[in-house]
């Protein structure tokens, strides 16, 4: 009996030793040298793996961050929209660098062709994917630029931040939005844009991307931008550009004075999170005052950020 035990023990010990030696050499041979910083950076990233940074996942973003820090000694052009400034600061601290504050972004829906504003002229009967409907026809309301309302953006969102409003038939973005950009890619019509959240969450933007001539646009949708250029003329900061019968407000130049909102004949320019308008317009001094503070916020923006929005 003892003999059996002995043999068994010896075999096992021998087997273990031999395996350990082989393992050791294999491990030496195939050792992957990885910067330990990658693990540390990866730790602080949000692990959403949303791809909002432009890289396949948080791990690869961590690798890119470390690489950039080692080679260029800066993290310029790299940003994690989900984690925001805090995460980027932490990551930069690990890498011994500093990052400039980035203006947080949010997705905005640049179409207001709701069921009431752009009544359906035909019925769509088919699968609920905008991508297919976009290839099939112009849209129920007749606007070939507007929202198809079939929710590809909702399906693409990993953060539960965009939902269809059954009453208007349009998607709505809530506070959970981290500006990962998934919906921007998912929308076949390019309606969704990432814009700076703005001070106190205040934003002004043209909620339309219709490039048709005014008459046609207006025929299809009550609240379409008809390209009348009134906002362009009234804007004191040259923040508005007119292109193909369509106004666009540059969020960097815009000082949120709200003049354009007032003159827009079709109410296609939206203001968000502003206090209810007083009867009388604000005095000039106040406007200048506001602009100063705004200017400070906007100066901190980075060029790369602007590019990613357009």
């Amino acid at each position: 009996m003892n003999e059996v035990l002995m043999y068994a023990l010896m075999t096992l010990v021998l087997l273990g030793t031999v395996s350990a030696v082989i393992l050791y050499f294999v491990a030496q041979k195939f050792k992957v040298v990885e910067d330990p910083k990658i693990d540390l950076v990866d730790e602080v990233l949000p692990k959403a793996n949303c791809g909002g940074c432009g890289f396949p996942g948080c791990r690869s973003f961590a690798e890119v961050l470390v690489k950039s820090a080692n080679e260029k000694h800066s993290l310029e052009g790299l940003n994690c929209p989900v984690g925001g400034n805090n995460v980027m600061k932490e990551a930069a601290a690990i890498l011994g660098l500093e990052v400039e504050e980035q203006e947080p972004l949010i997705a905005v829906i640049r179409c207001n062709g709701s069921k009431a504003n752009s009544p359906a002229k035909v019925n769509y009967d088919g699968p609920s994917t905008c991508a297919f409907a976009h290839n099939l026809y112009a849209g129920e309301g007749g606007c070939q630029f507007g929202c198809l309302g079939l929710g590809d953006c909702v399906a693409s969102c990993d953060f539960d931040a965009i939902h269809m409003n059954p009453e208007t038939g349009l998607p709505e973005v809530n506070d959970k939005c981290v500006a990962c950009g998934a919906c921007v890619k998912a929308c076949p019509r390019g309606i969704i844009e990432l814009r700076p959240k703005g001070k106190k969450d205040r934003r002004i933007f043209v909620s339309c991307i219709n490039q048709d001539k005014g008459g046609i646009a207006k025929k299809n949708c009550e609240v379409a931008c008809i390209g009348c250029s009134k906002c362009f003329k009234v804007c004191p900061f040259e923040a508005i550009t007119m292109n193909n019968n369509l106004a666009y407000i540059d969020p960097i130049k815009c000082k949120l004075c709200r003049k354009c909102v007032e003159v827009c004949p079709t109410n296609s320019i939206h203001e968000i999170n502003f206090p209810v308008r007083k009867k009388k317009p604000e005095t000039e001094e106040e406007i200048v005052e506001t602009n100063k503070t705004m200017a400070v916020t906007h100066d901190t923006k980075q060029d790369s950020n602007i590019e990613s929005q357009s």
């Binding site: 359906a120 035909v122 019925n123 769509y124 009967d125 099939l136 026809y137």
Partner: peptide, 8 residues
């Protein structure tokens, strides 16, 4: 009446 649009 409204016409229906669908793929073939």
């Amino acid at each position: 009446s409204q016409f229906t649009i669908s793929g073939s």
